[in-house]
Computed example of a mutant assay.
Amino acid sequence: MSFHSRVSSTRIKRALGVQAALEWAFRIEQAQLELPLPPDVTEEGFGFGLEYVLLQRAVLGCKIDGGQHKIGGYTHEDAELIAATVAGIPDSLGGKRMAIRVAELARAGLTPDWMPGAVPRCVPTIVKQNQHGTHAGTIVVGTERIRMRGPGARGTWKTIEILACPITFSPHPHQIEAARRGYGEWWQALGWVRDGLIAGGMLREVEVTAAMPKVRPWQRTPPSCC
């Protein structure tokens, strides 16, 4: 065995958690996300051209990776393999839409917004301001007839308005639930990518570890007993 082959065989890989590996591939190496063609588009001609890309951007509501090449035109082959794995996220975990989301978040170095610290609070839906400050507004929800009593009333009847202060919850519990459900779906997709990269064993200079982001970062870990 030559000296060169011995050095190559003992090369130490760079250990990265899956989120760090994704950010390295898409943010540093600027790997492209090559999404598979839809069933009704052929590979002939320009079936996957600008028109299709623009259409997908409109349908998915976000930008599709691609077109941003690294200076010098070279992307590390490990980064390309990571991007190819992301592109293969199955439909059961979100498919193309999730692949785009994973890639875009990694390119920006972000974690999905799970609305940390969000607590629904009861707030008035109508707010009015006057010289005395800000106060909750009211609406008429009905009327009631009451009999007047007291000196001079003589048992007369009077119609009065019943007022109520409409309220809502902000942020709404459904908003918080949706944000955290979206985080959970992203987390599951990262787990699939991590498992695929580890099982494949095809990365040459990067080793994806079992490390994952917190599964439910909004849940506080109970203090350990002394």
Rank of each mutant, 00 (worst) to 15 (best):
E104V: 03
P223A: 13
E207Q: 13
R180E: 02
L81K: 10
A87N: 09
V53M: 07
G49A: 11
G196D: 12
R220Q: 13
I71L: 14
E43G: 14
P171V: 00
E34G: 05
A103K: 06
C122G: 00
I139S: 00
D91R: 12
Q30Y: 07
L163M: 15
R220T: 10
K214Y: 01
R57S: 04
Q32L: 06
H132I: 08
A87E: 02
H76M: 05
L55I: 01
C122D: 13
R149D: 04
W186H: 10
V7C: 04
G72K: 11
E185L: 06
V141E: 05
K128M: 07
P38E: 06
E177K: 13
A79Q: 08
V141L: 03
M98W: 03
Q175A: 14
L203M: 08
E104Y: 04
A99V: 07
G184K: 08
P124C: 01
I167N: 08
T209F: 05
E177C: 13
K70Q: 03
V123G: 01
F46M: 12
I82A: 01
F46K: 02
E161P: 00
T138G: 02
A106Q: 10
Q19S: 05
P116S: 10
M212T: 02
L203V: 00
T75K: 05
S224Y: 01
M212R: 08
W157S: 02
K128G: 07
E205D: 12
D91L: 13
E44G: 00
R180V: 07
E144F: 00
G133N: 06
T111N: 11
T168Q: 06
P120E: 13
V53L: 10
P223T: 05
D65E: 07
P213I: 11
H69L: 14
R220I: 11
L33I: 03
I71C: 00
Y52G: 00
P217C: 06
L93Q: 08
T10F: 09
V53I: 14
A210Q: 10
I82C: 05
L81R: 15
E80M: 14
G133I: 03
G73Y: 11
A106T: 12
V59M: 05
F48G: 00
S9I: 04
N130T: 03
H69I: 10
G95Y: 12
T156L: 09
G94D: 03
L163Y: 05
R204E: 15
E205A: 14
A118C: 10
W24L: 13
R27M: 08
I89K: 04
G155T: 02
E51Y: 03
P151W: 01
E34S: 04
P124Y: 01
A210S: 07
A210I: 05
I198Y: 03
R154L: 11
P222D: 04
E23A: 09
L22S: 06
I89N: 04
M148R: 15
H76K: 12
C122W: 09
H174W: 08
I160T: 08
G196I: 00
L60E: 08
Y52N: 02
